[in-house]
């Protein structure tokens, strides 16, 4: 009985491994990539009261140094309604971020999991948040830090993948303004498969 149970486990494990190997062989390109995503961004902490959740668009380009490490740059824009005490009322502003980042990941089957982080700069389109002291007079630029992770599904075509990602960012000079962003994205990778 014990022998048959052990045999079953071994057989099951072998089957699982062979399945895994088969799926891991789904081709995925490695090299230069471009990624476009869209989603929503919300602020955290006290600033949550001063800005509504807004739409975000994110573009990334970079290079896969290895199958598990990529370096790239990201350009992100988000548009928010300012919900500061009126007046003003119903006004919108845009927050632009440009960052250099690194992405670490691994692939299981046709899914890839990754974590990423980077730093750069941010620009805000108006001084509407000056009313609530998020901005000082004349302040429009800040350094920016971000980190996050997500998952990616490799399509049958080796160049394409789609994914879901979440990012936390912080802007120290804007009174340490913080936010989180969720997005879906499409990635196109040039080059051969690995």
């Amino acid at each position: 009985m014990r022998l048959s149970t052990a045999a079953s486990l071994v057989a099951g494990a072998t089957l699982a491994m062979s399945t895994g190997v088969a799926h891991a062989e789904r081709p995925a390109s490695k090299g230069f990539y471009a990624e476009a995503g869209m989603g929503a961004t919300g602020h955290l902490g006290a600033a949550r009261s001063w800005s509504a959740i807004g739409a975000t668009v994110e573009l990334r380009v970079g290079y896969d140094l290895f199958s598990w490490l990529s370096l790239g740059i990201a350009a992100v824009t988000a548009s928010h309604e300012a919900t500061v005490p009126p007046p003003p009322e119903g006004e919108y502003y845009q927050l632009y971020q440009g960052r250099a980042d690194a992405r670490l990941g691994f692939r299981v089957d046709s899914l890839a999991f990754f974590a990423e982080g980077g730093a750069g700069a941010a620009y805000i389109s108006s001084n509407v948040l000056g009313k609530v002291m998020v901005l000082d007079p004349g302040e429009r630029f800040t350094i920016a830090f971000a980190g996050g992770g997500g998952l990616e599904y490799q399509l049958q075509n080796r160049h394409y993948a789609v994914g879901l990602a979440g990012t936390y960012w912080m802007l120290p000079q804007f009174d340490a303004l913080q936010g989180v962003e969720g997005r879906i994205f499409l990635r196109y990778t040039y080059g051969g498969s690995h």
């Binding site: 476009a36 869209m38 824009t77 845009q94 196109y188």
Partner: peptide, 27 residues
């Protein structure tokens, strides 16, 4: 095609960013 979709998204983002910069208000 997905490639066209990616290009369209990029262009839409850049256009939106450019339009926003052109008329940024100051309070």
């Amino acid at each position: 095609r997905p490639q066209s979709l990616a290009v369209a998204t990029v262009l839409a983002g850049l256009t939106a960013a450019g339009a926003a910069c052109a008329t940024d208000p100051q309070y």
